[in-house]
Structure formats: C-alpha cells, structure tokens
Amino acid sequence: MSTHLESAWYRGAPWLWLLRPLEALFRAVSACRRYCYSKGWLQSYRAARPVIVVGNITVGGTGKTPVVIALVEALAERGIRCGVVSRGYGGKATEYPLRLDDTVDPAECGDEPLLIHRRTGAPCVVDPDRPRAVDMLLQDTSVQLVISDDGLQHYALNRDMEIVLLDQQRRLGNGFCLPAGPLREPPSRLQDVDFVLYRGSADAIEGVPYRADVWVNLVTGERRQLHAFRQQDGLQALAGIGQPDQFFATLDALGLHYQRHVFADHHAYTAQDLAALAGDTVLMTEKDAVKCRAFAGENAWYLRIDACLPEAVIEAAAGLVLSSTPEREIQCLSQ
C-alpha cells in the first residue's frame, strides 16, 4: 500500500473524490458477492464447531492478532480449547493447508499465525482457503471452537460470530471504500456484526486497551521489567508492523531513549538487518521477534503486549460452545 495514499485517506485529501467512480464499482462488486453468499448461490462452508471471525473493514493493521491471542487464552481459562485458522499473509508455503509446529519457518506461514501458535499453544492451520484450513483443524477432535484470524470478507466460511476491530484514533478514515478510502466494505457493514471493538480505547464495553507486560530476550527467554532499559544508552528500536508509531509511543511512555528503525509491515527480516545494530541493545515488537529469533543475538528483546477484552465478548464466545449441539456436528459431517 502506498504510504502517500494511506495518508490521504486519513487526512481527507480532497483529490480522493476523483476516485469515487472506482469506489462505486468496488462497492457494487462487494455487495453483489455478499448477496450471492447470503442467498446460497455461492457455497459457504459450515463447520462442525462454532466459528468466530476476528476481522476488520479497513485496510492495514488494527490489532486483530493480540485480540485473537487474548480470546484463546481467556477461553482456555474456562476450559474451552480453541483452534485458529489464518490466511498466513506474507507466508509462501509450498503446500497448503499447513499445520503449524515448532519447526515451521515464518517465511512459510507468515508472522501472525506463528505468533499466535507460539504464544497460546493452540492448534493453528494456515491456508488461503479457510474452509480447507478448518477441515484440517477439526481433525483434532479436541477443538471446541474455531477462531479465524482475519477473514471478515471471506464469506466462503460460514461464521457464528463476527468481531470487528477498529483503531480508536483512525476509525473509518474518510468513510470511503477502496480505492478512495481505506474501507473494504461500507460503514453499514458494522451494523451486521456482533461486536465492534476499538483498539486503544479504555471503554468497558467497546474498548480494547493494550497493556505492556514484560521484556523477553529472544535467545535466552529471560524476562525483565518494563523499566529495565530506562537508564541505558545505545538502544535501537525496530518495528515492522502496520502502525509502528504505536510501538514507539509505548517506548516513549516508558521513558526510553532510542534510535528508531521502521520496516514495512510483514517485513521479511534477515541477519543483515540486525548486523548493523550489533553491540547495541535491540528492542522490537513480539511480531517482529517471531521472524528474528533464528539469527538474533542475546542483546535482542521483544515487548510482550496483552490485549484486554470486554467481558461480554468472552462470555458470548463461550456461549457458542455451550449452545453447540451434537446434531450440528452430524449435519455438517453429512454435507
């Protein structure tokens, strides 16, 4: 995505009106496609277990992965075993579906699903064809609930609950769909989802605040308190995420003095990226750490972040499992 175009979307540049004819076409195609699925003219796969989609209607990162992690962990505390499916953006596996384990390279599966799997231990399958991913996932009969990381517009997968993430500051940008704005679907789509949550908001009902937890060493696994590097010089902070300024803002709030290094979202890190920083303490996001672990030195640390979900979301998700019936599984298996 062009940084210039993205900036124009969120500052409301007047010239974007020139793209409105293309936006109208995009809206029409999107609405037609969704209508065909709703009428059953295009087939939608219904899984034998309840499915929750955690997605967005805007282009770019809105913090879906931390929410998926938080949901998996919260449901595990209630004795509910979740499995996760993902498109695996940025990954280039030679064969799909790809079930994740400790040997999978992030270059194959993408950074976000591997982060979810390593953080939660939940079974995770990557495949651009999400119904096929769910099929493989449900071969693990202990999975009681399927969570799709992204995929709100992937209507080939039927879902029981939709959770949409928006950035508290950016919200819907200029309110236009692509290419005149950042929206994948019109704002009216939000009326049909179960929950709209705002990243960075402290609102008890719709907010998802993020809490910095601890620094973790990429090599040794050692943990340090958040202020461990406050008095240290020679700090190098790198971020290859959708909105890197949010990571740097956290470092500022911790009182750290550092030099920033910004990479593109989903950047495929190499040893050379870190070689120039040898000798200094390197700070990064947990998402970046997934891709740097294999060649990082003992001077590299990532910041573990926890998302705090509204209790209503957790209860509603748990309720899907409690209300799921054996008849559903029989019907789905007989399809």
Score class of each variant (00 low, 15 high):
Tyr89Cys: 08
Ser323Trp: 05
Arg224Val: 04
Tyr89Pro: 08
Ala300Asp: 04
Gly319Cys: 08
Pro128Arg: 02
Val72Arg: 04
Pro128Lys: 06
Ala300Thr: 06
Phe26Gly: 03
Ala93Arg: 06
Arg34Gly: 14
Val53Phe: 01
Ser30Gln: 13
Leu183Cys: 04
Pro187Trp: 00
Trp301Met: 15
Gln335Ile: 06
Thr103Trp: 13
Ala271Tyr: 00
Leu322Ile: 02
Ala24Asp: 06
Thr250Met: 11
Ala212Asn: 11
Lys64Ser: 14
Val208Gly: 11
Gly88Phe: 11
Leu256Ile: 00
Phe176Asp: 00
Gly110His: 03
Ala212Tyr: 04
Ser38Pro: 01
Thr103Gly: 11
Asp203Tyr: 01
Ser324Thr: 14
Ser188Pro: 05
His117Arg: 15
Val321Asp: 08
Asp280Gln: 15
Gly234Leu: 09
Val313Trp: 04
Tyr198Glu: 14
Pro106Glu: 02
Cys32Leu: 14
Gly279Thr: 07
Thr325Asn: 14
Arg49His: 01
Asp192Ser: 02
Leu274Phe: 13
Leu42Asp: 03
Gln225Ile: 03
Gln168Phe: 05
Val219His: 04
Ile116Asn: 04
Arg328His: 14
Leu138Arg: 07
Asp245Thr: 10
Glu108Arg: 09
Ala300Arg: 05
Val193Ser: 06
Ala318Arg: 15
Ala300Gly: 03
Cys82Thr: 05
Gln153Leu: 13
Ile241Trp: 06
Leu274Arg: 07
Gln139Met: 14
Val104Ser: 08
Ala48Pro: 06
Arg81Met: 07
Gly255Ser: 11
Arg304Glu: 12
Asp288Arg: 02
Pro66Trp: 04
Gly240His: 09
Arg159Met: 02
Arg159Ser: 05
Phe26Cys: 09
Asp265His: 10
Val51Ser: 08
Ala47Ile: 10
Gly297Glu: 15
Gly121Asp: 12
Gly181Cys: 12
Phe263Ile: 12
Val143His: 01
Ala24Pro: 02
Leu333Ala: 15
Leu145Asp: 02
His4Lys: 09
Cys308Thr: 13
Ala133Trp: 03
Val146Ser: 09
Val313His: 10
Asp192Trp: 07
Leu152His: 04
Lys291Arg: 15
Gly297Tyr: 00
Arg328Pro: 03
Ala317Arg: 00
Lys291His: 03
Gln169Val: 11
Thr250Val: 13
Gly90Ser: 06
Gly83His: 10
Ala28Pro: 00
Val193Cys: 05
Arg171Cys: 10
Ala268Thr: 08
Val54Ile: 15
Leu178Met: 13
Val216Thr: 12
Val104Leu: 07
Val72Trp: 00
Phe26Val: 00
Ile241Arg: 03
Trp41Phe: 13
Leu138Ala: 08
Val72Met: 01
Ile330Gly: 01
Asp265Met: 13
Ala31Pro: 11
Glu6Leu: 02
Ser7Val: 06
Leu226Gly: 01
Gly55Leu: 04
Gly221Val: 14
Gln335Gly: 05
Gly240Asp: 00
Asp167Ile: 11
Val164Asp: 05
Val214Pro: 01
Asp213Gln: 10
Arg132Pro: 06
Gln43Gly: 08
Tyr269Asp: 05
Pro310His: 12
Ile80Thr: 01
Gly173His: 08
Val54Pro: 07
Leu152Lys: 01
Gly319Ile: 12
Ala275Met: 14
Arg171Asp: 10
Ser324Ile: 01
Thr220Glu: 00
Ala289Phe: 10
